[in-house]
Amino acid sequence: MSKLKNKDILLGPISGNNPVIVQVLGICSALAVTSKLEPAIVMALSVTIVVAFGNVIISLLRKTIPNSIRMIVQLVVVAALVTVISEVLKAYAYDLNKQLSVFVGLIITNCILMGRLEAFALAHGPWQSFLDGIGNGVGYGIILIIIGFFRELFGSGTLLGYQVIPQSFYGAGYMDNGLMILPPMALILIACIIWVHRSRHHELWEEE
């Protein structure tokens, strides 16, 4: 029973209760950092790390945090983790860190992150909190990566900076779709993913 519960905690946010397309959280970063695949991947990994370890730390401290200052403690923990992520990016991926700009710092205010700390980590043990953080981070990251994949492919003809669409296509008249790299297209892609997701789950519910 415990294993099934842990499995649900981990896998639930990836599909059935996805934080972006079901709970409609974290939309701002999905619009802002997905014009290219690489920053989408880095943001996905960063948020997953912060949510997972933030959950664990708050879970370990949950019985010692006075209720009146719990939000302050959560912000301090998250700010420390985000600072570590930011410094690592500056040291090993400086250009990418500049490309992400303020959005790494804004992980602190990510609705998904604060929601999991408040709704889950304060009420569950460290292991389940870690699984919840991984699940929600991966669920968030999958959506960012899907959007980043299509926006870069059709907007620039590249993936991870490498040319994917053959030059012969351009010679035959093919043109990159400039609309794909604009923020409104990210919103349209999210809407399409939500539509497909809800249609699929509606069919599954009918079969049950």
Rank of each mutant, 00 (worst) to 15 (best):
M1I: 07
L4T: 11
L4V: 07
K5Q: 12
N6G: 13
N6T: 08
L11F: 14
I14W: 09
S15V: 12
N17M: 14
Q23T: 10
Q23C: 06
G26T: 05
I27N: 05
S29L: 02
A32K: 06
A32M: 08
A32I: 01
T34S: 10
S35E: 09
P39L: 01
A40P: 05
V42R: 00
L45I: 15
T48H: 02
T48V: 05
A52L: 14
A52S: 15
L61Y: 05
R62C: 03
K63C: 02
T64M: 05
T64Y: 09
P66Y: 01
P66E: 00
S68K: 06
L75V: 15
V78N: 06
A80V: 15
L81F: 11
V82D: 08
T83H: 12
V84P: 13
A91C: 13
Y94M: 00
D95T: 10
L96A: 00
K98S: 10
K98V: 08
Q99K: 03
Q99A: 01
V104Q: 02
V104L: 14
V104S: 01
L106D: 08
L106P: 00
T109W: 05
T109Y: 08
I112W: 06
L113K: 02
M114L: 15
M114E: 11
R116F: 11
R116D: 10
A119I: 13
A119D: 15
F120G: 02
A121E: 11
S129I: 12
L131S: 10
G133P: 03
G133V: 10
V138M: 08
V138E: 09
G141V: 04
L144S: 07
I146W: 00
I146Y: 00
I146E: 01
F150Q: 06
L153I: 07
S156P: 03
G157I: 07
G157Y: 01
G157T: 02
G161N: 02
G161T: 03
Y162W: 10
V164F: 03
I165F: 01
A172K: 04
D176R: 12
N177F: 13
G178C: 01
L179W: 11
P183L: 03
L187K: 04
I188D: 02
L189Y: 09
L189R: 03
A191G: 15
I193H: 07
H197T: 09
R200W: 10
H201L: 12
H201C: 04
L204M: 08
W205F: 10
E206H: 06
E208M: 11
E208A: 14
